[in-house]
Design a binder for these strands. Structure first.
Lengths: 185, 185
DNA sequence: TATTTATACATAACATGTTCATGATTTTCC
DNA sequence: GGAAAATCATGAACATGTTATGTATAAATA
């Protein structure tokens, strides 16, 4: 029965939880990252810091905003990471004369040394995973992931109408606070 | 030339960064989650809180450790989340008389109401994504992700040097085994 | 039974994700 | 030229990821 008698609304049955796409993606990524994390830990760098160093290794210098897109990090996170890496003398920031709001980031010789030390571990782990999974399947997976991303980004933006916002049936204690920094108002 | 003259060591060339498997998985998951986040934000619940509520919605009660595995959350995160959800009267924790270390978690009527309010949004978004991507490709992707996870978990544990000690393996065969220290039998 | 060891859960501490807000510029527009 | 708006980078505040540690309890063992 799809429609309970005498009631227009019905409870939506949630799909099996552990088989959901977000969970599958999360678990797959975690499987992969666990192989890398133990190596990165040897060098006292986090996954995100390694992303930054890797991105820097292929360019002479790069603007912070461009670096954020390349590493898929949000600006505040990247700001903190760069501050930390600069204190460790792994990167250096240079202001841009043409636009004093911007700054260029470069890797230092110390940073390059670290990259060269980590890279063999990283590549070895990547090769192991590729070999275990199979190169063709790896390419197929990558293509599918890219298609998924493309297809989703083609979807129209979600608009919440007044009906969606209609949820006053939750008490204040139940409602909770919005995410992130609380609004000043 | 693969080998620089007069030097046994060589720099390992890092693969293209934005095409790496971890980055592909991360970007794909972010594309998916962005569709969900705006809805969850309407109800002031985070993705992780929603994972917990969803897991609770299918059981009468569940132990914290089992819930952690089901939601793929680490114990400290889950501990904080449950504390928050309990303060919002969405879940309730009950100590287990037989073993005072453990506690059972259940969703409250308020929590159920919230779940029933969120579920239609969640399912609608999931359907949109499935339709845009295609059901067959979705299944293929899920199968590949599962295979990847399985293959990686079959790989031998990483051993770096004699220096770094292998952390004690967390017990994964908890499904039907007794809690606490394993019985000798 | 007393001691030791393992487990369940919580807490601490720090890095990052996420959102909002601010300061310093640069750009746009009047 | 000057006010308003947009942009870049950072900071604030809270939730979560991650590792280490602590506390209470149960199980194993001497």
């Amino acid at each position: 029965m799809d429609t309970p008698a005498g009631n227009g609304k019905m409870k939506v049955r949630l799909r099996s939880f552990s088989n959901s796409l977000p969970m599958s993606l999360l678990k797959a990524r975690e499987s992969v990252m666990q192989r890398f994390r133990s190596s990165l830990r040897l060098f006292n760098i986090t996954e995100q810091q390694w992303r930054v160093l890797r991105a820097l290794s292929s360019v002479e210098s790069i603007e912070v905003t461009v670096l954020a897109k390349a590493t898929f990090l949000l600006a505040p996170s990247l700001s903190r990471i760069l501050k930390d890496l600069e204190e460790r003398h792994l990167v250096i920031k240079t202001p841009v004369a043409k636009d004093l709001r911007r700054s260029l980031v470069s890797v230092t010789p110390d940073g390059l040394k670290l990259i060269d030390a980590v890279a063999p571990h990283s590549e070895r782990i990547y090769s192991e995973i590729t070999q275990a999974f199979g190169e063709e399947k790896m390419k197929l997976l990558q293509d599918l992931l890219k298609e998924l991303e493309t297809d989703i980004n083609k979807l129209p933006a979600i608009v919440h109408d007044a009906a969606d916002r209609q949820m006053p049936e939750f008490s204040q204690t139940t409602a909770g606070l919005p995410r992130g920094r609380p609004r000043k108002s």
